[in-house]
Amino acid sequence: MIAKVAFAAQHVVGGSQGWDQSTDFKSWSSGQTFKVGDKLVFKYSSLHSVVELGNANAYKNCDISSPIQSLGTGNDVVKLDKPGTRYFTCGTLGHCSQGMKLKITIIKGNAPSPTLSPSSSPSPSSITPPSSTSSPTTVIDASSASQCFTSFFFLLASSLTLMVSLIKQS
């Protein structure tokens, strides 16, 4: 459980542009894989807000009259807690119809994702930083093998600490 939470991805909605009218959210989201346990991070100015819509019809028609939730801090985090489709838009009048809306599909968290294999690690020169113009801003989550490996060592270290503590007490 601890390892799963530690390796969840945080998707900054819209990448470097954030939650803004100038962002092409359809294009941005097509380059993402959203998994259960991941988080969406909405960063925006006071001109905007985040409204979660309940269904495809409300999304298509920009109907914000019955939102699931409305957020307005400018730095909102939404946890993706189950598989399925979720719909978001800006609550500012006219912004949804101008394209400031996001539809995502969340998959189960144990699906394969593009990650480094646990047996290899890149040299610093082989790591390419994301482009600020077109690349999505995402913290990539670890592979299932890496999560298992990390969990194993966490449990091993905890067990050893407990055993040493018990030996000292006797």
Rank of each mutant, 00 (worst) to 15 (best):
A3N: 11
A3F: 03
V5S: 15
F7T: 14
A9I: 01
A9G: 07
Q10D: 09
V12H: 06
V12G: 04
V13S: 02
V13N: 00
G14R: 05
G14C: 05
G15H: 06
W19Q: 03
W19A: 04
D20P: 04
D20C: 07
D24R: 09
S27N: 12
W28Y: 15
S30N: 05
Q32W: 04
V36H: 02
G37K: 07
G37C: 03
L40V: 10
V41S: 11
K43I: 02
Y44E: 07
S45W: 01
L47D: 15
L47A: 15
H48K: 10
H48V: 06
S49D: 02
V50W: 00
L53G: 07
G54V: 00
N55D: 13
N55S: 06
N57P: 08
N57M: 11
K60Q: 12
N61T: 12
S65M: 14
S65K: 08
P67N: 09
Q69S: 15
L71T: 03
L71H: 06
G72Q: 06
G74L: 08
G74N: 11
N75M: 06
V77P: 04
K79Q: 09
K79L: 13
K79V: 11
D81W: 00
K82G: 08
T85P: 10
T85G: 08
R86Y: 08
T89S: 15
T89W: 05
T89E: 14
T92A: 13
T92S: 14
G94S: 00
H95Y: 08
H95W: 07
C96V: 04
K103A: 14
K103W: 02
I107H: 03
K108M: 05
G109W: 04
S113R: 14
S113F: 02
L116E: 13
S117Q: 12
S117E: 13
P122R: 03
P124C: 09
S126D: 05
S126E: 10
I127D: 06
I127K: 09
T128C: 09
P130D: 07
S135W: 10
S135G: 07
P136F: 01
T138P: 06
T138G: 01
V139L: 15
V139H: 12
V139D: 15
D141R: 13
D141T: 08
D141E: 12
A142T: 01
S143C: 07
S143V: 04
S144R: 09
C148R: 13
C148P: 04
C148S: 12
F149L: 15
T150W: 14
T150H: 13
S151E: 10
S151M: 05
F153K: 13
F153A: 06
F153Y: 10
L155K: 10
L156D: 04
L156C: 05
S158W: 00
L160K: 00
L162C: 05
M163H: 05
S165K: 04
I167E: 03
I167P: 01
I167G: 00
K168V: 00
K168S: 03
S170G: 11
